[in-house]
Design a protein around this nucleic acid. Sequence first.
DNA 1: CGTTTCGTTGAACTGCGTCAAGTATCGTGG
DNA 2: CCACGATACTTGACGCAGTTCAACGAAACG
Lengths: 301, 301
Amino acid sequence: MADRPQKAEWFGKTRKGTRPKGPVARGREKAREGMTRARAMAPSATPLWRKLGSYLEIRDEEKGFLAELERTIVGHPPRTDLLRQGERYGDVRVMRDGWAMRHKALPDGRRQVVNFVLPGDIIGIYCNLFDIADHSVTTLTAVSVANFPPERVVELFQRFPRLAAALAWAGAKEEAIVAERLLSLGRRTALERTAHLIVELLRRLTVVNLAENGRFTLPVTQEILADALGLSIVHMNRTLRRLRDGGLIELNGQKITVNDLRQLASVGQFDELYLHLIRAPKRLDQVFDTTRGDRGDVRLA
Amino acid sequence: MADRPQKAEWFGKTRKGTRPKGPVARGREKAREGMTRARAMAPSATPLWRKLGSYLEIRDEEKGFLAELERTIVGHPPRTDLLRQGERYGDVRVMRDGWAMRHKALPDGRRQVVNFVLPGDIIGIYCNLFDIADHSVTTLTAVSVANFPPERVVELFQRFPRLAAALAWAGAKEEAIVAERLLSLGRRTALERTAHLIVELLRRLTVVNLAENGRFTLPVTQEILADALGLSIVHMNRTLRRLRDGGLIELNGQKITVNDLRQLASVGQFDELYLHLIRAPKRLDQVFDTTRGDRGDVRLA
DNA sequence: CGTTTCGTTGAACTGCGTCAAGTATCGTGG
DNA sequence: CCACGATACTTGACGCAGTTCAACGAAACG
């Protein structure tokens, strides 16, 4: 297309990096370790099984329980609301296949996409507590989800504390992702946000084997992307163009290819800590095995 | 239109549309009064006890365990880092008294405050999983916190599933707050964000008896507020001025008084769902008592 | 009491939003 | 096979909300 500046500083200045005050500016080094963790589990495993399995070795009886949870499978077409802001929660759902988005809307229609729901993610696990949803979940592709009643979660907490812990930690990871997006919306420019999101998605999808060679399907319109990044559609489009013209990414329909991951991550100020967090968590097994509490009776009295 | 609107539409259009240009006459009063740092404290219950107690009736043995958790109390002066992004997690901490903030920083120093930590809130409960922190926590006031080693969390999951569930749900509530702030940063104007945050804080503080008659202490500089709302200091200041000139709030040092809650909530597009969520959660007791799983042995094998 | 830190305000600038209009692309019915 | 909306993607022109720069007063602090 049009000849544009090449590589290096193609994007011009990213922002005034200097901030006069603020005690926080420690240097952080690469943290390049820890690459060794293998994540792929048995192919037969269900998404939830696989997700929790990344935190600890699932035991047989736990395996059985999880399998039972994911017994009822339902499919939904794209653009279906699985949950609607302001309405009651239904069953708990585990995304098995496909994409969805979690989003919130203002009364006047402005909308914010909070997060993307990928295979293995859970929807509405806390419905026992908040019976009315404060957000919506809408499918982006055709999906297949497993449904089960919320009481099963309580049962899980009672009978399988290790799974409960894994679940809680999975929730914490999600919160960390949302917090990182908050940092994006609050303090990153449009270009930085966009770059950051692309890198994040690439990482998350790589973990679940949905991306390879920096290439993945992004089943999302630019409008939705804009709603995720707090931008207007027009500016979203222009920002993507800048990334394309800079040669960092390629777009063909819903296929996106990351050509220069290093630079994209650098533009997005992608933090290696964050990376570590969304990729390979510490294993819980030994923590559990070490700790006393083995008199495992739930009620002492 | 009148060039100096009263009440009602004093702020002009909130989003799109033209802003009636021209200087807004401002009566600036500077009454600076003694800074009382009043802070109601619980007569008997510890903050954690009280927090989890809002989800379910704490039993005696659970009470004992919680009390033990909060045995080691440590005080810290204002502006102390309790946790530093990029460093290892230490003990788990429960905020007993005072304010802190959770924040993340970009390498170049730009900073985003993710949330404010109030009495009863927990810091670093998931350190078992992520041994390196992706965010910092810094005190805003003098605080008193309870410390305990992370293994106690594991123990709690193993021995007290009801508490574990309450803890998980408390975490979910926090995530909901962060998600709502995400909506603010993504889709609300500066004025709306500010109004929304003030209403949110008023609600949260009222629950723990740290606010009355719409009046509370906000131990925060405008810079920190700006970092929480994704604004520049200058614009933060101007936005607060608009709220003051509109008569919605009053500020004296760190005391803030909400004069017109209704209108403030309306400006901030404060959602009642969200309100419900941060205030009074559903009780878990009966959910637990109903569900089977009473053979409460932790390990079947 | 000097030195920071915090708050405040004017003025100029800019990243991003809004408006408007045009261009693929695709499914659907004729 | 071609019109046909309909939806998504692009791009130019312009305006505004919010940023940056700069400067100063006032409170907090040691």
